[in-house]
Amino acid sequence: MQRTLKRPNFAAWRQQSFVFALILLVLAVAVNVQLQPNFFKPSILSGNLRTYLPLMILAAGQTIVVLAGGIDLSVGATVSLANVVAVQTLGQNPSAGQIGLALLAGLAAGLAAGALNGLCVAYGRLQPIVTTFATSFVIGGAALAIMPSPGGFVPESLSAPYRSNPLAIPMTLWVAAALLGLWALVRQTRYRRYLYAVGSNPLAAYVTGVPVALIRLSSYMLSGLLAACAGIALMLSNSTGDALIGTTMTLDSIVAVVLGGTRLSGGHGGIAGSLIGVFVVGFMRSIISFANVPSWWQTLANSLIILIALAGPGLWALIRRRNV
């Protein structure tokens, strides 16, 4: 049972983890270009990509929790909480200082939500799925208490940069690059090794002196923080606050993580795959809507493709097992 803790073989996991998602992405882009010839037109591309930005940030946070062997079903509620906290703090005619305060308040709310999850799972040793399901009520309820009905006001000066394309490159790609850059920095540190160790074998990690509970707590706090960033991104894109805005995003974030090749059992995968996963989900959806699929069949077609994509690596392995 005792697995020794060695440095993972980078070449090997890179080969397995998101190659499949990358193939899907290339396929999806190719079909999209076929269906809409102006797919790569900057205004259209950046508009398309911008709708994926919040989910992208959210999926990055979910990945960290999953890598550490947990799962976070409360991320959607955290998105909503940060969204309404930021919008409420902003008020009607915010000064520069108030804008800064609003952003900080949103991030703090996300961090607090993550800490609640982390404390329950890491120190309370409660089962992650049911625990984060329970906290999603607490967090979502808090969001509803703060803003019972959608509303608020976001000044144009604040939301304009969100819609801009610095250096003619869509904002979404800048954010993706920033996330990957930060992740690359984290990968240089001991933290990354601890994260993977806790996810793949917590007992072995504990025995070799890794602060398992602390790493788990931090993974949930990072997820909460990134969910808050997603909530703020949604505030900028919609220019309003809504206490239910994140509800449907939780399951999408898990789908993106799994499509990206990160194992739900923990300790295997990475953020790059999840970002690709988000784009795959988005591009597949736009294929269906452009391919003249009858409207009542669109959801079925879309979810069948996603299901097949999720089962794809398993299907491939099965065929190989049968042929050997």
Binding site: N302, L304, A311
Partner: peptide, 21 residues
């Protein structure tokens, strides 16, 4: 296919939802 149960049944939720439509 060795898909994790959470993922398989989550994907199936979407498919059944589509089937209903």
């Amino acid at each position: 296919l060795r898909v994790p149960p959470l993922v398989m049944t989550l994907g199936m939720t979407g498919v059944v939802g589509g089937l209903i439509l």
